[in-house]
Design a binder for these strands. Structure first.
Lengths: 217, 217
DNA sequence: CTTTTATTGTGACGACGTCAAGATTGTTGA
DNA sequence: TCAACAATCTTGACGTCGTCACAATAAAAG
């Protein structure tokens, strides 16, 4: 989705320095490289090689490897926020939450390594303002969906945590393998395994109301 | 818990090679090092240094860094299985599942880095038989708890996935930070945040029965 | 006691991240 | 137009890393 935009920017943008914007090229090369080799196999030098620049060029733009991977993770959260927003638009009530959860799991299964980088890699700086802002943007979509599902103006904190935990846990377990039966590609069969979990999640979010031990009432 | 056992083994075991059992010492040093520096900061050479052996000694026992970290992860699953089993013993019915989930989250918050290594590190070989056996041992505890909570001899697959996803997602989100409010140690305040999620999880596992769209019946 | 095997150490290799210093290009102000 | 400056990129070096071939050592077997 970036080719045409890039061509436009090549003309309109002031082209601030030598290479065209190396920072963006490096970030995109880094994302591609991470997808290929895993977070662990990622290397700054290989990334520079693919961008056609010297091995130390990434350092000038991002400081160190953590800085670059933090940028990649932040972009991942922006993508996730967009995906969740588009999944919810044009719907209301409980189905909003179900559709958001489905999209959340789909995103994770489509880009599992980036997803892992976003949430649990010790190679990203979670204190980075840009990273946090991107995360909050995605989080806001979740808050809206939970409030909508419960028919309330604001999301209950416990319900919110539960909803997020359920879809996030499902995504994690499907990515990391322990739940997916052998043989069967990830995108197809695995995503179906999430259906029952999503149903139960929506069920509990909409029906559970803190009734402690009073099941006969 | 290993000092006295070690003393015993020093006598009873045939002491198969030079160092006493270097393999075990290396695995323990590796676990400690991972806890200190994170999975990413781990280094075979530093591990060997702490065990007081040559830099290539770990390679002779575990092949490469993945082999050693796989052993650490497998040990983590054995620990988890033990913890879950002890949490469930002496109880029955739905509370079993609640207690198991609580223990699951506690385990994750107590040893977050090892927990992360166990589930999603590209530095462990998930095809390793030892690793898989250890994982299945922990999984078996979960299966038992879900069956017990539903009063059935065998666990429903959908309910099982949902239960695991909920507790696992909660653990992940608490470890990785996005859910825990600033300032407040992990073990105390964070674990309390799981309570509502666990309640809802048990609620859905025991009450949801595939009633599709028939809310008025 | 000698031979064989299992366990550990030495040394080397290329790849990595990071830093300092120099080279190159764009910008700015007269 | 041109010189001074700042931003951008390259070169080269340093220490650390994982891994491998090979040597050394100790246990086991005969």
């Amino acid at each position: 989705m970036s080719e045409t935009i890039e061509a436009q920017e090549r003309v309109t943008a002031p082209r601030p320095y030598h290479h065209g914007d190396l920072a963006r090229v490096l970030a995109e090369a880094a994302a591609a490289l991470v997808r290929e080799t895993g977070v662990n196999g990622f290397s700054l030098r290989e990334c520079a090689r693919r961008a056609g620049v010297a091995h130390s060029a990434p350092g000038h733009h991002y400081g160190d490897v953590t800085g670059l991977l933090t940028e990649v993770a932040a972009r991942g959260f922006l993508d996730l926020a967009r995906a969740l927003a588009s999944a919810c638009s044009g719907t209301s009530g409980a189905p909003v939450l179900a559709r958001l959860a489905r999209r959340y799991v789909d995103f994770a299964l489509t880009d599992p390594i980036i997803f892992g980088l976003m949430f649990h890699s010790d190679r990203v700086n979670r204190g980075s303002p840009r990273f946090q802002r991107a995360g909050e943007e995605a989080f806001a979509q979740l808050v809206r969906a939970v409030a909508e599902a419960r028919g309330q103006p604001t999301a209950d904190a416990d319900a919110l945590r539960f909803a997020w935990a359920s879809m996030h846990g499902m995504a994690m377990l499907l990515i990391d393998g322990p739940l997916v039966p052998a043989g069967g590609n990830r995108r197809g069969g695995a995503a179906d395994l999430a259906t029952g979990t999503i149903e139960r999640m929506v069920f509990a979010v909409t029906r559970f109301d803190g009734q402690r031990k009073s099941r006969s009432g």
